[in-house]
Write a protein that binds this DNA or RNA. Sequence first.
DNA 1: TAGATTGTTAATCGATTAACAATC
DNA 2: TAGATTGTTAATCGATTAACAATC
Lengths: 226, 226
Amino acid sequence: MSEKKRSLGLPTIRRIPMYYRLLLKLYEEGHSVVSSSFLAEALGLESIVVRKDLANIGIAGKPKIGFDTRESIQTIDTLMNSRDSNEAFLIGVGRLGEALLCYKGFEQLGLHIIAGFDIDPEKIGNRIQGKEVFDVKELPRLAQRMNIQIGVLCVAEEAAQHAADILVEAGIKGIWNFTPSKLNVPSHVVVQREDLAEGLAVLTVKLNQQKQALESPSGNNQHSLI
Amino acid sequence: MSEKKRSLGLPTIRRIPMYYRLLLKLYEEGHSVVSSSFLAEALGLESIVVRKDLANIGIAGKPKIGFDTRESIQTIDTLMNSRDSNEAFLIGVGRLGEALLCYKGFEQLGLHIIAGFDIDPEKIGNRIQGKEVFDVKELPRLAQRMNIQIGVLCVAEEAAQHAADILVEAGIKGIWNFTPSKLNVPSHVVVQREDLAEGLAVLTVKLNQQKQALESPSGNNQHSLI
DNA sequence: TAGATTGTTAATCGATTAACAATC
DNA sequence: TAGATTGTTAATCGATTAACAATC
């Protein structure tokens, strides 16, 4: 009774990596405690946002003292499973796939992409920063043997659904989808779509609004561009 | 009086690329008209979301008929400036920078990354898919001469603020920031932060919730994971 | 005309912000 | 104790969803 399961909101989840990286840095620098206003200032947020987020994540502070950095890091570790480490396979070793395979930032957050898979004989057998590229045919066997839970999908758009089917068949539970395709997968599989064009759209729309605001004669209630 | 300036919400702006790509495909396939329910089905949305979004974007449909694909595409073109084409420079030609330099998906949306910049002599002078890598020292001169508005920031975290300063100094109006750093820039410069770890956090939290939901004895009101 | 589809208005939901009480 | 900081409760804001009117 009463576990209360604070269902975490999406905006809060998205801000977790920011908090995590900063907390880690502060901890390593020897700060055992930090205030919400300090975190807010460093991250460009309001302190009330930080307090609400941390509370929702399950991190409690002490009035007048602040938040224990070590404890906070551990709570996020548990939430994101980053101590156990999430192991992943990457499918589609094109330029983006290669970049993600090597990207350092994920390790810190507990995601270990341990191998790449492709159908191109030119790529199969290569090692990219110590990570081997295998034939896609090997994926199901290896995924099952190593109990891999996460697949990073970086194939061409046309191949997206097919590659997703392979991942699902191989027993993978979560797909990080870098193609713009909608994937059909069983309901027990979690799909996270990553569309770089989203950010691009935000940037260009804001730029155009900024430009129009500057061009237009002043005096109008030309209010806050988003 | 009464231009009404429907200030576009962020969630709507983020969905624009999805609509745009699908509309383009439909138009090329010869469909001159499409219903909101068709778009919704193809994109995994509700039709009411599509209608609200299109209305906010400034696309009007005809009852009983649907939305004109060509007209819709043109309206988005205007909004995102994609006919004029947004030209950009990329700074920091590491693996991610290289991947972005070559990424095809941006062209379609009107972003043309026309050159890369780096400080590494090994990289300077290289061509990556026809795009030259210049010395960062050349950036201000070239940016001003070509009237470049957008900078794609892919340097290492430690160099982020310095690179941003260079971009601002060069007269760039919008920065697409792929580093996890918070940037200090003048208020007339728009910054769009792109943090791949955000999506990773969402994926892993959802996965853990899914896992717990499956493990826990049924019967509990183990409701919708997010 | 009848039916399908858009567009509008209202209701709901969730996230952010504000005000202030609790507490080390 | 007094002051600083967290935590809670309420208010506001914006996005999504629902119901239905308008219209080709």
